[in-house]
Amino acid sequence: MFNSHSYIVIVLLAIIASISACSPNNTSNSNNLESKLDINTFQSSVKEDVNVSIPDGIYFSYKRCDLEENCKGFKPAEVKGIYYLPSNQDLNESMYYLLVKNNNYYIYSLQFLDEDLRAVGSWSQMHKIDSTDLSFRIKSIEQVIGSDYLARYDDSNLNNKLDTSSNESGLLKIGSLVEGSELPTNETIRFIRTNDGYQVDCNNYIDEYEKVVDQLVKQNRAVGYHFYYECANRNSIFFRNVS
């Protein structure tokens, strides 16, 4: 026979057993909640991930700004909807186009003056470095207007190529891959997405330039060709789609 003390113990054990029976469900619910939070956090990060490619089109360096946000605007050279590098350029002014087509990236530039006070024009293919941002590496420059630093430039031959390529004397059509003087280089460019286009990441540009400049100068190779002048003077270069 059970005495009163035994009865109380049995009741307490029954209550404890009942609570224990419910515990696995509570643990399971807790685990499920944590799992859902993990999934939601992951899904949220995916949804907020920026697009790390630039859509097809022709982008032009339409604006340059200094540290005080004083900006100067530029217009592309265009004839009947076709964009060009012109055969001349104002002193200390630069013109850049970014061409994106079928996941291929090219940059066209008209800048700097050679010893004969002629603008230097070139195009280069940009190779994507990785899939996490808009960083590109340029391995060589195809110089098609002006003399290069080794004075390799054949005016008559190259002008004939340009005439055939663009049907405009002395102009390089954006999208043309006409051969000029190939100069090796090692240039890294990263773009930052803006509200209406892209901006050159000048801090990154100068950092990458400083990593290689000493070695490449010793090797007599071109380096820092495209945006060094602007970035070194702490200006910002902005691109937007003109096509």
Score class of each variant (00 low, 15 high):
N160W: 05
H127Y: 11
Y149F: 15
A119S: 14
Y198C: 08
S44G: 15
V52C: 09
K128Y: 00
F238D: 03
I145P: 02
F112C: 09
I206F: 02
C71H: 05
D56Y: 05
G121N: 01
F227E: 07
Y83F: 13
I16A: 09
S23P: 02
Y228N: 08
I39S: 15
I138P: 00
S169L: 09
R221T: 12
Y84N: 00
N233Y: 04
K211W: 06
E34N: 15
Q89T: 07
I138H: 01
A77F: 10
A119G: 15
N220C: 06
F191T: 00
L172D: 00
L98M: 12
D130M: 03
Y108C: 04
G175L: 00
D130L: 05
D49Q: 12
L158R: 08
D130E: 08
H226T: 05
N160G: 05
I189K: 04
N220S: 12
N204D: 13
D90I: 07
D90Q: 15
I54Y: 04
S131R: 08
I8K: 13
N102Y: 09
K101A: 03
N32W: 11
I237S: 08
S124L: 02
D56A: 08
I16Q: 04
D130Q: 06
Y209T: 02
G146Q: 03
E182H: 06
R152M: 09
N25V: 07
I145A: 04
Q215V: 11
Q219I: 04
F227L: 07
T164H: 10
L85D: 06
S53A: 11
F42I: 15
G197E: 03
K36C: 07
L113G: 10
G81R: 04
N3R: 06
S131L: 09
E142P: 01
F238E: 02
S140D: 13
G146C: 06
P86C: 02
T27D: 15
